[in-house]
Simulated scan of single mutants.
Amino acid sequence: MIGEMTVQVRVLDIKEGQQWYETFLCRKPDFIPHQGFAEWELIPGCWLQVAEGKPVVGSGPIRIGVLNIIAERERLVKELNIEFFTIHSREEVPVKWGTFTDPWGNRLGLFEYVSEGENRTS
């Protein structure tokens, strides 16, 4: 049985990377175990690790659930200067989603449940 999960992205400069992810996640890291490393617990038992190192281009995407994908896209384009990304949907899929990259080439994304009954982020 799985009890916890961590996902790691790498950035070339930890100070720059930590600041970018603080803005992306709207908060400071939950844990900085040592130099060159910062961690955010996104939901209980699910951690995003940002580590200094050579990024693995093309990995991911790591998708994060949000309540309003359009508002979050607008915020990220404005605050982090990411490229405007398309929000996709399909009738048979219960979410809308979109994908973008951080400045180091790590693929990230957002999703929003179409039906409020499905939403687990509220």
Rank of each mutant, 00 (worst) to 15 (best):
R75C: 11
I69N: 04
L76T: 06
E91V: 10
I64D: 03
K78R: 15
R107E: 11
E83S: 14
G65S: 14
R75W: 10
I62P: 02
I69C: 05
F111V: 05
S89F: 11
V77S: 07
K78A: 10
L67H: 12
E74T: 14
I70Q: 13
E83F: 00
E92S: 14
W97V: 03
L80P: 11
S115A: 08
L76M: 13
P61K: 06
F100M: 00
F100S: 05
E74W: 05
E74F: 00
T86K: 14
A71P: 06
F100R: 05
L67G: 13
V114P: 01
V114K: 13
R107M: 13
I82D: 04
N106I: 01
R73H: 07
F111L: 12
I87C: 08
G117H: 04
P103D: 08
V77Y: 06
R90E: 14
I82M: 04
E74H: 11
I82N: 03
I64V: 15
E116A: 06
G117T: 12
S89N: 12
I82T: 10
I87T: 10
R75N: 11
P103Y: 02
P103N: 08
I70K: 15
I62Q: 09
E72S: 08
I62C: 06
W104S: 09
F100G: 04
V77H: 05
I69Y: 02
G98P: 09
R107A: 10
N106C: 01
F84D: 13
G109Q: 08
G65A: 14
D102R: 01
E92K: 09
S89G: 09
P103S: 01
S89Q: 14
R75Q: 06
T99D: 14
W104A: 09
T86S: 11
E83P: 08
G98T: 07
W97R: 00
V93C: 10
F100K: 03
V77N: 03
D102K: 03
E72K: 04
S89M: 11
E79V: 05
R107D: 00
P103L: 06
I64Y: 10
G117I: 00
T99N: 15
W97F: 13
I70G: 06
L67Y: 09
R73P: 09
L110T: 00
W104M: 03
N81Q: 15
W104I: 08
E72T: 11
L80I: 13
D102L: 01
F100V: 04
V114G: 02
F84H: 15
L108S: 00
G98Y: 02
V77F: 06
L76K: 02
R90N: 10
A71R: 13
K96R: 13
E72W: 04
V95H: 00
D102F: 03
V93A: 00
K96C: 11
P94G: 02
F85K: 01
V66F: 08
T101Y: 00
F84Y: 11
S115M: 02
N68P: 07
A71W: 08
V66R: 03
E112H: 01
L67D: 14
